[in-house]
Write a protein that binds this DNA or RNA. Structure first.
Lengths: 110, 110
DNA sequence: ATATCATTCAACTAAATGGTTGAATATACA
DNA sequence: TGTATATTCAACCATTTAGTTGAATGATAT
């Protein structure tokens, strides 16, 4: 497995906050402006803007300007590295569960 | 999608540190004692012990006592919630990519 | 040009994180 | 029982993080 250390640090770091996960959810199927997003939370505009910056640095969202607004959407490759990482462990664990299952079957009447 | 907020906070938080990811990698296929793990890093024993506590709280590893030592291994359900979370986004993004592909095909000669 | 709306930046604060050292606990061994 | 080994706990420090407020920037409309 390749370890994209820097990328994974920021990806998982970004995902560790519930507000940021909620932002991802909201922009997962539609573009929303920074202001629209901010209205959902009991936070200042600036705080939400900071969360967006964290998500942007982690390449989980992208912004594009549309007149006065900045529109936020899920980045095309969002979560790809994180998915790869977790996939690797999933396979590992499945292998271990399979081994356990075989072991249990072989020792069924022990 | 269900949001296991607390669990995801600690899971992703635990995964955001490269030392902790390295620990996970090392115990992914074998049990290692806290001391054996500590030797791999240029950190004090106590610091590694703290990292292990973070991983344990996030239910990514388990410890069992074996005499004087504590043996560390990957938790059976490690990363399950994180995998579910990311899977949800993957499907979302695949759907969006499919839609894009269809759109591009339909407008091939436009 | 200027006023207004949307957003970011800068400076600050409080709390969390990652590290240290040294004392405390748990187990094994003589 | 006393000593050595393995690990954790407690107290502390430096850095990062998540939030605030208020000023600054960018874009549009008048």
């Amino acid at each position: 497995m390749v370890e994209y250390t820097f990328s994974l640090d920021s990806t998982f770091g970004a995902l560790s906050d519930p507000t940021r996960r909620d932002i991802l959810r909201r922009v997962s199927d539609t573009e929303l402006s920074v202001g629209q997003l901010a209205r959902f939370y009991d936070l200042t505009f600036a705080a939400v803007s900071k969360h967006l910056k964290v998500l942007e640095k982690a390449a989980l969202i992208v912004k594009r300007r549309n007149g006065k607004e900045q529109l936020v959407s899920l980045a095309p490759q969002a979560l790809a590295d994180a998915a790869d990482y977790i996939e690797w462990y999933k396979q590992f664990m499945e292998a271990r569960l399979d081994a356990l299952e075989i072991y249990l079957k072989e020792n069924q009447d022990g």
